[in-house]
Computed example of a mutant assay.
Amino acid sequence: MRSFVRVLLGLALVFAGTSHLSFARQDFRAQVPEFVPLDADTTVLASGVAEIGLGSALVFASRRRRFVGTVAALFFVAVFPGNVSQWLNRRSAFGLDSDEKRIARLFGQPLLIAAALWSTRGGTRRP
């Protein structure tokens, strides 16, 4: 089950990263907080490349799964202010067109963090 969740999470990240670079680029700009020192488009492109790399690492990781899971969890923590910014600034994107939908999304981030950590831990330990 852990491997299934890890691969699913990795594929979701690759898809999300690809969408950063193409069809959802405008929507992702709505999440970039004002305090980010780069312009919104550069931030979206850079985070998309990071998501593709991170997602690929989750799918193909073998020896470094725990490390990759930790990096993925930290990435989800790092992008959380963007979700908060979207809610606070009432920016509609991804069908999140009400305060209720935008705040409900905030509760999904801890689940992603937990999935990244849980799916890359466990199994047999080496002596």
Rank of each mutant, 00 (worst) to 15 (best):
M1V: 08
M1H: 11
S3H: 08
F4V: 15
R6I: 06
R6P: 13
V7N: 00
G10F: 01
A12T: 08
A12W: 04
A12Q: 00
A12M: 01
L13G: 00
F15D: 07
T18L: 15
S19L: 10
S22V: 11
S22H: 08
S22L: 15
A24N: 14
A24P: 05
R25P: 05
F28L: 06
Q31Y: 08
Q31C: 13
E34Y: 00
V36G: 06
L38N: 11
D39E: 07
D41Q: 10
T42P: 11
L45M: 14
G48T: 04
G53Q: 13
L54P: 02
S56F: 15
S56R: 04
A57P: 00
A57K: 02
A61V: 00
R63P: 01
R64G: 05
R65P: 01
G69S: 12
V71E: 04
V71C: 06
L74E: 12
F75Y: 15
F75C: 02
F75I: 01
F76L: 06
A78H: 11
V79L: 09
G82Y: 07
G82L: 04
N83C: 10
N83V: 09
L88I: 03
L88F: 10
R91T: 13
D97F: 04
D97C: 13
D99K: 08
E100Y: 07
R102W: 10
A104H: 14
R105Y: 01
R105T: 06
L106G: 03
Q109S: 13
L112Y: 12
A115S: 11
A116S: 11
L117F: 02
W118S: 04
W118K: 00
T120W: 01
R121M: 11
G122F: 03
G123Q: 10
T124S: 08
R126A: 15
R126D: 11
P127E: 08
